[in-house]
Each structure stands twice: as structure tokens, then as C-alpha cells.
Design a protein around this nucleic acid. Structure first.
Lengths: 207, 207
DNA sequence: GGCTGCTCTAAGCGACCGCTCACCGTCGGC
DNA sequence: GCCGACGGTGAGCGGTCGCTTAGAGCAGCC
């Protein structure tokens, strides 16, 4: 048996903003459980148990089970957006910025696979209002990547006939890492990030 | 309200092998429900209701709810494998065969998104033995694509430093189409297939 | 020491789950 | 005309779900 911290906090995934301590422990336990079994197959008793508390304790810190998923999803998307924004805003050519964005985005999906799985694949389990908010964040994610690709096309670095479609494909490729990446597999998050940065530069026809 | 046939049978997705008629109707209803809500969030009452039958009728044709998912998953994977085998075995250069494989595989994921979603994303809901069988089919899928890429490398058509990793990425890209493709969106399955074939040829450095 | 407020637990409510069972209508074979 | 086989139903069982409630333990403040 592993504690909640070992798996979900493994890469220092900054749940530090969640207070008090008991609320954070519950949230980390929920991330683990949702990633392993999916939102609907996870019981509130399981979440509370992983956090070392009674089932009722969950409802002191969260109104419903869905609020837990909402909080996880928002914090995760904000983190993902921050990663892309940092890469997009740095100095360098579009080629360098795109490679940086893809490799760090992929590293996050591979290294924090537990969190990324919940963030990327449990969106449909949210209610309409919560889902709408998250979709807004995803549009911003899309805009960051599209911006870099457009810069590369404008500077003549890239050859991309379909910018919207290629942006979609690049993000899709990165996101799907959370589905297949295996912590016990033969590749490290760094290696996958490097491979994917190379593949994406080929996709955009970087010189 | 739409009938089960309209959505899940839309692309003539050949559930014809499932008999008798009532068993097929239940299976198509299950594909719809699993794709919309996920396996765990779908109730047997919902499946039976969509098929126009009472909850108990399901258990005349299937032993458990999981058996439904297993049958759907196996038939779907066999269909996907058949599509790739056809493309891999045709005459032509590795470039032509890879483009054909990707475009037809993507067309299947986009056009039959309902089925593809269940096939690709509900694998973890299967029990150990059923999952092991499906994983065997997936390894064959992987082998088909890797075979084409290896052919291209051997003939000098492709420039691929990491065949295993690139194979994984190509399949990942295609599979993820089932997650984001929207029937009401601006692209047809054919258009996405063509775009993706082009992107994949770039990824393998096709001349 | 008494009081308030916060965190947590034990117990359990009402609803709904997957699945079963006793029974029924229909239909081909004799 | 009777019969068994087959495919179907209504009712409901045992269990588990998300969530609530009454109250215990324990701070800090006067």
C-alpha cells in the first residue's frame, strides 16, 4: 500500500494551495482514486478511506463528490495552461518555443500521469456549469499552441497547410500520453518529451 | 430522441454478426449508453430501456453487464485490426500503405466515434481475463503499424530514429480522434483522415 | 471554568444498483 | 388440441451508493 502523497504528489504537483491540510489529503486521495478507477466507479467511502478519515469527513470540506472533481480539474488545467504559457512567452525562435512547449507539456502528462488522467479524461463527469468553465480553460490552452504555430508560419520556419487542424493534432498527441504512459515502462517522461518534440517539429515542417 | 440504429449503426458498423435480433438491439443500445456516459455510469435499466425492453430481458442474452462490454470491445478491436491489416497487405510503397492505414483507421474512429470511444476508452472496466484478451488484440494492431514503418525504413522511404516510439505516437494520434471528434463539427471523417495521413507521413520523414 | 466554533465520527436514511425468480404469451411439431 | 422451448415481463432481493444528522473531542478566548 502506498500513501496518497507518494503517487499523486510524486512530482511535487503543487496541491499546496489547497487548505486546510485535511482538505488537501482528501483531494489527493480523490485524484488517485479517480485516476485508477474513474470518477463514477469511485465511492466517497474509498476517497475518505485513502485519506484516513471516515466517510462523513469528506462533506465537511466539500459539498459533493462532484465538487472534488471540479477542483481537481480546475487546478490541473491551470497548471497545464501555465506550463504552455511559460514556453510560449520565452525568448527564441518559434521552433525552439514549440519544442519547449511540447516537451514540457508531455513531461507533465507522463510524470503526473495520475493527475493528468483525471484532468483530461473525466471532463464529461462534470455538470454543465463546471464543464463550461473547464472548456474555457481548454480554449486558452489551444490558443497558446496555435499562437506558436502561427508565429512559425509567419516567420517562414514552419510549413503548415492547416493550422487549426495541426494544432488540434499536436495537443491530441500530447494529451493522449496520459492514457498510455506507464510508470514502470521503459521510457522516462524526459525521453518521451524529447521524442514528441522531435515528432511535432516534423509535423509542422520545421526546417 | 434517436433510435439505437441511427447513432451506433450509422456507418454500417456491422453488428450483423450478433444474433438474435434482440441481442443485437441490446448491444447497440449498450454501445450508445457506454459512449455517452461511460461504462460505470450506465445502468442495465438504461440499456434495456433504449432497446425497448424490460430490465430483466438483458439477462436472457447476456450473463452480466460486463459481458456486453467484452463483446463490444472484442468485435470493435477485430474490426480495427481488419482495417489495418487490409491497408498493410495491399500493394504499393510503404508510404502509400501507411497513408492508407492512417486515413482509414482515422475514418473509422471519427465516423464510428460512438463505437470507437467504447472500444478505446472503456478497456479498464473489463475484468482481468477479458482485458488480457483485448490487450492481445491491441498488440496485433501495434504490430501492423510497426511493420509498415519498418518496411519504409528498410526501403529508405522513411527516416525514423525511434521506430517503437514513433509507432506508439502514430497509433496514439489516431486513437485520440475518438475523444475529440465532434459529429457536428466542421470536419468530416474523410477530411480528418486525409489531414492525419499527411501529418503521419511528415512524422516518419517520408520523402 | 464555561462557552463557542471547528473537525471529525458512528449510525443510518432513502434511493438505486446489478441481478434473480416466478410466471406468461407465442409458436412450431406431433 | 396439447406441449415443451424460447423470449419476454413485473416484482423484488440484497447490497451499496451519495449524503445527512446527532453528538463527541478539543482547541482558543473570555
Amino acid at each position: 500500500m502506498s500513501t496518497a502523497e507518494e503517487t499523486a504528489g510524486g512530482e511535487g504537483s503543487a496541491w499546496g494551495e489547497v487548505t486546510p491540510d485535511a482538505a488537501r489529503r482528501l483531494l489527493i486521495a480523490a485524484v488517485e482514486a479517480f485516476a485508477e478507477r474513474g470518477y463514477h466507479a469511485t465511492t466517497t467511502r474509498d476517497i475518505a478511506g485513502r485519506a484516513g478519515m471516515s466517510p462523513a469527513a469528506l462533506y465537511i470540506h466539500y459539498k459533493t463528490k462532484e465538487e472534488l472533481l471540479h477542483r481537481i480539474s480546475r487546478i490541473g488545467h491551470e497548471k497545464a495552461l501555465e506550463i504552455l504559457r511559460t514556453a510560449a512567452a520565452r525568448e527564441g525562435t518559434a521552433t525552439e518555443r514549440l519544442a519547449d512547449a511540447v516537451s514540457s507539456f508531455v513531461r507533465w502528462h507522463a510524470g503526473g500521469r495520475t493527475t493528468a488522467r483525471v484532468v483530461q479524461y473525466e471532463l464529461d463527469s462534470l455538470g454543465p456549469e463546471a464543464r463550461a468553465e473547464i472548456i474555457g480553460l481548454r480554449r486558452q490552452v489551444d490558443a497558446e499552441v496555435r499562437g506558436i504555430i502561427e508565429d512559425g508560419v509567419a516567420s517562414g520556419e514552419f510549413d503548415v497547410p492547416d493550422v487549426k487542424g495541426t494544432t488540434l493534432a499536436v495537443l491530441s498527441l500530447c494529451i493522449d500520453v496520459a492514457r498510455w504512459f506507464n510508470v514502470n515502462g521503459s521510457r522516462t517522461p524526459d525521453e518521451v518529451g524529447e521524442l514528441y518534440a522531435d515528432l511535432v517539429l516534423r509535423m509542422v515542417g520545421a526546417k
